[in-house]
Amino acid sequence: MRAEALKGHLDGLLLAALEAGPLHGYAVKEALREITDGRIDLPTGTVYPALHRLERAGLISGSWSVVGGRRRRTYALTAAGRTALGGERDSWQEFASAVTAALRARSWPATS
């Protein structure tokens, strides 16, 4: 799936990837790839600035740890993040229903 198609939906996808539990940046990207059966596979490096923005917005919180001698930042959903994820789900359902209805093939009445 092309990155442009994700415009406006990336925040919801990242929040959904973190719903099951805290993850570090690379694991967020991997989780996103797995939950979409490989259809959404973003360049990993581009996930980090989006995570930083979500953190500044208070939707996720980050914490540092040391793993294998490397400093690692892990992110977890905040209460505000869970609420925002619920909102993203609702608005996506509404949007998807509207587009599905609009694109549904119709049988036009025959003209004589």
Binding site: G25, Y26, T44, G45, P49, R71
Partner: peptide
């Protein structure tokens, strides 16, 4: 290359992520 362009705090995360990708 990235360290020349981006802030140090972001580089720690990128270094961890790229190493993780390499190991995978």
């Amino acid at each position: 290359i990235l360290a020349d362009r981006l802030p140090a705090q972001a580089m720690e995360e990128l270094a961890d992520g790229l190493q993780e990708a390499y190991e995978a």
